[in-house]
């Protein structure tokens, strides 16, 4: 007899998230990994410079916490709403997204960065979260 039971609550992340971290750990570009709620599950060492925090110190961070650590704005200096950020677009649409904008770092200087994000959807078509890759476009804007 075969009986399907209720979905079990797992302790470990989905394998697609775990393998994303293993990739991020080996990259020299900043990488964020978020779950479907936007909780920042992991950021690699290069991303620690963007956030000004170390992953070993913070662990996972809710979106309300990590999104306030940098203030994104456009070329005209207008503050960007969360929904305008590539990673948030990916979470809502479950599609890849790309964008360039400015952020202010902890030392007060501004950097133009590009962000490419993509959804993590595994073999069983389950949406597990998203990955964002960051890189600096230009030299710091004083």
């Amino acid at each position: 007899m075969i009986v399907t039971l209720n979905t079990r609550r797992y302790m470990a992340h989905d394998i697609e998230i775990i393998l994303s971290r293993q990739l991020a750990d080996s990259l020299s570009v900043p990488v964020f990994i978020v779950d479907t709620d936007g909780t920042l599950l992991f950021y690699n060492e290069p991303a620690e410079y963007i956030l000004g925090k170390r992953f070993v110190d913070t662990g996972a961070m809710p979106v309300a916490e990590w999104s306030t650590l940098f203030q994104p704005f456009d070329d005209d200096g207008n503050r960007l709403l969360p929904k305008e950020l590539p990673l948030v677009k990916t979470l809502y649409r479950k599609e890849p997204a790309h964008g360039s904008f400015w952020i202010k770092s902890l030392n007060g200087s501004s950097h133009k960065i590009s962000v490419t994000s993509f959804p993590i959807i595994g073999r069983a078509k389950k949406f597990s979260g998203a990955v964002a890759i960051f890189w600096t476009d230009q030299k710091a804007k004083e």
């Binding site: 007899m1 399907t4 039971l5 797992y10 073999r123």
Partner: peptide
């Protein structure tokens, strides 16, 4: 039968 992340009795 195809399996993903599941729980069932057999």
């Amino acid at each position: 039968h195809e399996l993903a992340d599941e729980k069932f009795t057999l």
